[in-house]
Amino acid sequence: MDRHIQAPLKKEDIDSLKSGDYVYITGTIYVARDAAHKRMDDLLNKGQKLPIELQDNIIYYMGPSPAREGRPIGSAGPTTASRMDKYAPKLLDLGLRGMIGKGKRSAAVKEAIVRNGCVYFAAVGGAGAIISKAITSSEVVAYDDLGTEAIRKLNVVDFPCIVIIDKEGNDLYETAIEEYRQE
């Protein structure tokens, strides 16, 4: 089913999203990947405040290519989410509501998704040029020294993605494959 939703996420939207839904997101989302997650985790371990507000927000796992003049961003497709599995459960427990990436998640992340009523979306891997067209602005909000790995705040309009793991813990990567398996 095709759905249009707003970011930050609303509880009623998350409640109605089902694994396999094609979703277009409009609003504000954050971008962070490996190095930024490590820094945020270090801060939390020291009991310090994060540079971004997590409550009801979405983190997009992505590291863009540089923007050409007059454009908000370069190529901007998802990176493999499992590299953030070590850090994600803690962020979900602290209020993060959605993640966008690609690829499988660990059992611990799935449990945290169900425990907190969250959602994991996948964007199409290797489609960074077309995905960049859904991003209307990009601003570095922390860790500028990390270059492509800095934390960014994006404004997106009809950003295309697919619900992989819904709040019930249904996982499209497990169910969809069964349908087409011919072994």
């Binding site: 992505m62 590291g63 290519s65 050409r68 370069g74 190529s75 891997g125 960074g128 960049s132």
Partner: peptide, 9 residues
């Protein structure tokens, strides 16, 4: 538009 096919170049 000369945007890399994938951001991971």
């Amino acid at each position: 538009d000369m945007i890399p096919i994938c951001q991971d170049t």
